[in-house]
Computed example of a mutant assay.
Amino acid sequence: MKKDLLGIFALILLISVLVMGTDIKSVEEYYMTNIDNITETSETVTISIRCDTVMDNYEKLSESLKRDEFIPQDGIILEPTEYVLRPGDTVFDILDRTVRYNRIQMEYQGADENNFGSVYIQGINYLYEFSCGPLSGWMYKVNGEFPNRGCSKYELNDGDVIEWVYTCNLGMDVRCDWNK
């Protein structure tokens, strides 16, 4: 009996040490406080999110989106912002951390849910594919070039610059030439 009580006491002590020593946070709290700090030795990338093409195609925009909270007047959803690059990070990894940290809405289709084998970005800041006409949607550039692969397949390097841009004309309005 004495050994049982001693065992129960030890178990209660262990559980209370674990609970008191564990910082339990919600997902939102985690992303708001655990963005890596940039140091002199950090590898970094820069990311921005823009939808300026919508301004030239405003008449095509869904009525429900014609508000500044969805489409900023200057077309900038996120100014160029620097983030720490972790080993193996892809364009999608950085976008995912960025939108969570900045509380920007994003919806995507997983790589296992489409024929491309890569994550497909359906919408950012409530601006979706086809929200501004039949040829509209999100595209990305790395170092000024539009890669010919999905965002979860493009592994990044130190110093890369990622630009998410919204096209209203299948890329032609954002200087993407698919015929190259």
Rank of each mutant, 00 (worst) to 15 (best):
S16H: 01
S16Q: 09
V17I: 13
V19A: 15
V19S: 13
V19T: 13
M20F: 14
M20D: 13
T22H: 04
D23L: 13
D23P: 00
V27C: 07
E28C: 09
Y30Q: 09
M32F: 05
M32Q: 15
N34D: 07
I35A: 08
D36Y: 07
N37D: 14
N37W: 05
T39A: 02
T39C: 06
T41C: 09
S42L: 06
S42A: 02
E43Y: 10
T44I: 06
V45M: 03
I47E: 11
I49C: 00
C51W: 06
D52E: 13
T53Q: 14
T53K: 12
V54L: 12
D56W: 04
D56G: 15
D56Q: 14
S62F: 12
E63G: 09
S64N: 14
L65F: 02
R67S: 15
R67E: 15
E69Y: 11
F70W: 09
F70S: 06
F70H: 11
I71L: 13
P72M: 01
Q73A: 13
Q73P: 10
D74R: 08
I76S: 12
I76V: 13
I76M: 11
I77N: 04
E82Y: 02
E82M: 05
E82A: 00
Y83T: 10
Y83N: 01
V84F: 04
L85W: 06
L85E: 09
L85F: 02
G88E: 14
D89I: 03
D89P: 08
F92E: 03
I94L: 02
I94N: 00
I94W: 01
L95E: 08
L95I: 05
D96Y: 13
